[in-house]
Nucleic acid binder design. Structure first.
Length: 819
RNA sequence: GCCUCUGUGGCGGAAUUGGAAUACGCGCAACGCUUAGAACGUUGUCCCCAAAAGGGUUACAGGUUCGAGUCCUGUCAGAGGCACCA
């Protein structure tokens, strides 16, 4: 009899939901987070729903997380596995625009479709706790969070050069720009000066960096975060512009070579540039150059990496800081305005500086040379830029002479500090988080600007600031949100003085929505508070977080930041939200990335309809290691389909007690196969190696087919299968007479004694080449093994008559004769 | 340019972490069952010469070791992260 998945899967999905089977710690029919005995927070990144529906890549990630959660649940944990929709944001809005729908209306359509699809994949979602970021009940607290950040001085307003996406017509955070293009729509990103809201994430740079060491995350993601934060230690050199008396500082991360500094560069965007040249003969030319550079950078015509450095002399000098002569100040294209101080003293020991000086004929001086005297002469005569060699020998200043570059660092800093030329400085590449978006589909930033009192936060009692349903939601491209033309929205009164005031009409970045959702899941319906601190303390940090590696720096960094802020505010006692994070791999289709334009996007619905969710789930987990991702191949689905059908066939045998279809019943063989499978599946699910866990199940089933199986053994096997094929396992479980769900049954244990064989094949090598095996008892000693080998004519001939030079014996594994 | 990974049959991928390379699955072939096909079942399937015994093989070239897919050095190829960041 064939397995009819369509009826069976629907039946159990309904029953599980009706029984609240996947709600953690159910009491009196409902979830009870406060009284859970063994809380286990099994979280996956929530998806942003598109009307095209669930992508098989989404399903891959969710099922991978679910398999893990299901085992944990059967191991006795109160597993909480919530699901929600990250529906606010540019992505969802762009899609709505494309199909000509209002995002607010479209969200409801997508929501319905998405949840229906999510419910069909058979995950153990705690659906009572689902949330959507565009629900006012949710974004009320996103706004509350913003308001609290403002009160604490962590949200602030400043005019800044921002990334302006010419496609989405909004500003983007640095993180959302990839190679000068918008990561969402691919259009050119320009630079624009606008006044915007920022989050002071740079205040947390050191903590965000330091904590990384303690996290149980994949190394790749940790490295990505470290790179992003980009800590650089060095000194700020105190300097002064000659004749003008203007003081400035220059950051230097390699202070060893300070004595080589012969010129100074300043970024074209630096506010000081005009002051340097105002009223001088250089003003016109320099300002023209600055204008040209700004324009080129704004239009992204300027490729920062490839372009040859350009510059112009300002006619000014930095006063000689170290008695080495005044340094001409140049405006240079390669200087970055918002890193360090935007002004740098340059030397021959930096490739960019060297190339720039050569191009414009600026004098250089080498103070460090290689050990090799011939090479040293080349460096002294400035043939090439000699940089960052730890074994380079210092020649100047006298205080450092003779020291190796690597060792000279501290000495150089001490020298500079003692002389009062500089002080220690740590610089980060991380910039503050730009929150404002000039779009419609997001949570309005809860701020009010009063003509008299200035910026005021919307009081908690007035939250949420509800996003109005409007006709004109298209981005305007003017630097203002569509809400800026909705009078009924922006006209308001000042919360402080009651006078005339205007609401902020920008909305916040969608990454603010997703920076705290995992806390809200624990009671998304609470109207009075953002969360119950006791419950959050009990359940968080998240025990296992699974998601895409593409969120390595964006989402994960923001979530960590917000969690730290909440801790500092005293709302929670922990500062890292995710104890363990594992990134899943990318699913591709027949060797190519899935994309709509290629037409190779797999729609899970088709496969669920044809083979059932269990088959698709098991196949997705089988095709490759979960952390690696893999290749989805239509033909290969059949292999898993056959396997599950064989399980189904065996169920009919098992029902009428142990039957052995093909040979004499061998209960020991089945028991051993089962124990091996329990061990392998338990370990492999624990380390997310689902592909080999399924392989172990296949081997175990084969063994049952050959040697027969008892009902009890088969039921243990079903438990191992349950995380992968939850519907079929449940169906057979009940058919075998069980009344309660298999998904709350206890996970089987294995017995090492049964797995271990008494006799085994010991490998025999001669000169390291394998020549055969001998059957031996476990624990056999070397002399007995040698006797066995000599007794075997085929093996003995390899060794010959002579005594071997050496014999290597690895107990219970191998013997190697060296002759 | 810098920093991380990854290279194993026709294909997806295994390999108690230094101990019999290719588990499991796909595909393919033969056979069985079928009027036929599908489905299902059985057997075989890394390459070379071969009946067998042997020999070769984990991108390539070296090295360490009794023994290397696994460790080290270099080269090539692919993926990802950062990038005029001083």
């Amino acid at each position: 009899m064939r397995y009819d998945h369509s009826k069976i899967e629907k039946k159990w999905q309904k029953k599980w939901r009706a029984d609240s089977l996947y709600e953690p710690a159910i009491r009196a029919g409902g979830p009870d987070f406060a009284h859970a005995k063994k809380p286990y927070y099994n979280l996956m990144m929530f998806p942003y729903p598109s009307a095209e529906g669930l992508h098989v890549g989404n399903m891959y990630a969710f099922v991978g997380s679910d398999v893990f959660g299901r085992m944990k649940r059967m191991q006795g944990y109160d597993v909480f596995e919530p699901i929600g929709l990250d529906g606010f944001g540019i992505h969802a809005e762009n899609h709505a625009l494309k199909i000509g729908a209002n995002p607010m209306v479209q969200a409801k359509v997508s929501e319905k479709r998405f949840y229906a699809q999510l419910d069909a994949i058979g995950n153990g979602f705690a659906r009572e706790e689902s949330l959507e970021t565009y629900d006012p009940a949710y974004y009320k607290w996103t706004q509350w969070l913003f308001m609290k950040m403002f009160e604490r001085g962590l949200a602030y307003r400043k005019e800044a050069e921002v990334n302006w996406c010419t496609g989405c017509l909004t500003v983007l955070s640095d993180e959302q720009v990839e190679g000068g293009k918008c990561e969402r729509c691919g259009n050119i990103v320009e630079k624009k000066r606008l006044e915007q809201w920022f989050m002071r994430i740079t205040d947390y740079a050191e903590r965000l960096l330091a904590n990384i060491d303690e996290l149980d995350w994949s190394e790749k993601v940790k490295i990505a975060q470290r790179n992003w934060i980009g800590k650089s230690e060095g000194v700020n050199i105190k300097s002064r512009v000659k004749d003008l008396g203007i003081a400035f500082e220059a950051f230097d991360s390699v202070p060893q070579t300070f004595a080589a500094q012969t010129f100074t560069v300043i970024a074209p965007e630096h506010p000081l540039v005009h002051d340097l040249v105002r009223g001088t003969e250089h003003e016109a030319a320099v300002m023209a150059f600055v204008g040209k550079m700004k324009k080129a950078r704004a239009a992204r015509e300027y490729d920062a990496v490839k372009a040859e450095p350009e510059g112009i002399f300002t006619g000014r000098y930095a006063e000689d800081p170290f008695g080495t002569g005044d340094l001409p100040i140049w405006v240079a294209s390669y200087a970055v305005a918002d890193y360090g101080t935007g002004i740098v003293h340059c030397s021959a020991h930096d490739e960019r500086d060297f190339a720039f000086a050569k191009k414009y004929g600026i004098p250089l001086r080498a103070v460090m040379v290689p050990k090799d005297s011939e090479e040293a002469e080349k460096v002294r005569s400035l043939k090439y830029a000699y940089c960052r060699d730890p074994h380079g020998v210092m020649e100047a200043p006298a205080e450092l002479a003779g020291m190796e570059w690597g060792a000279a660092r501290e000495a150089a800093i001490a020298y500079l500090e003692n002389k009062g030329y500089a002080y220690r400085m740590t610089t980060y590449r991380l910039r503050d988080w730009l929150i404002s978006r000039q779009r419609y589909w997001g949570p309005p930033i809860p701020m009010i600007k009063c003509e008299k009192c200035g910026w005021q936060a919307v009081p908690e009692a007035d939250l949420p600031v509800v996003l109005p349903r409007v006709k004109e939601f298209r981005p305007t491209g003017t630097g203002k949100s569509p809400l800026a033309s909705v009078k009924s929205f922006y006209e308001t009164s000042c919360p402080k003085c009651g006078g005339k005031a205007r609401r902020e009409t920008d909305v916040s970045d969608t990454f603010l929505d997703s920076s705290w959702y995992f806390m809200r899941y624990l009671d998304p319906h609470d109207e009075k508070r953002i969360f119950d601190a006791g419950v959050v303390e009990k359940w968080l940090p998240v025990d296992m977080y699974i998601g895409g590696a593409e969120h390595s720096v964006l989402h994960l960094l923001y979530a960590r930041f917000v969690t730290m802020v909440l801790k500092d505010m005293g709302y929670i006692g922990f500062e890292e939200p995710f104890t363990v994070f594992r990134a899943h791999g990318l699913l591709i289709k027949e060797g190519a990335k899935m994309s709509k334009s290629k037409g190779n996007v797999v729609n899970p619905d088709e496969y669920v309809a044809r083979f059932g969710a269990d088959t698709l789930r098991t196949y997705l987990m089988f095709l490759a290691p979960f952390s690696q991702g893999g290749d989805f191949r239509d033909e290969a689905v059949l292999g898993v389909y056959r396997f599950l059908n064989r399980v189904w066939e065996m169920a009919h045998d098992a029902k009428s007690e142990a039957r052995n279809p093909k040979s004499e019943t061998d209960p020991e063989k089945a028991e051993k196969a089962l124990n091996i499978a329990i061990k392998k599946v338990t370990e492999d699910i624990g380390s997310l190696k689902y592909n080999t866990a399924i392989s172990a199940l296949m081997i175990c089933l084969r063994s049952f087919e050959e040697g027969g199986v008892s009902k009890g053994q088969f039921m243990s096997f079903l438990k191992l299968l349950a995380p992968f094929a939850p519907h079929m396992a449940e169906e057979i479980w009940h058919a075998l007479g069980e009344k309660s769900s298999i998904h709350r049954a206890s996970w089987p244990e294995f017995d090492e004694k049964i797995i271990r064989e008494d006799s085994f094949d010991l490998v025999v090598q001669v000169n390291g080449k394998t020549r055969g095996t001998v059957r031996a008892e476990r624990g056999v000693d070397q002399a007995d093994v040698e006797a066995l080998v000599r007794g075997d004519a085929l093996l003995a001939k390899w060794i010959g008559e002579k005594e071997p030079k050496r014999v290597i014996f690895i107990p219970d594994r191998l013997i190697n004769f060296i002759i």
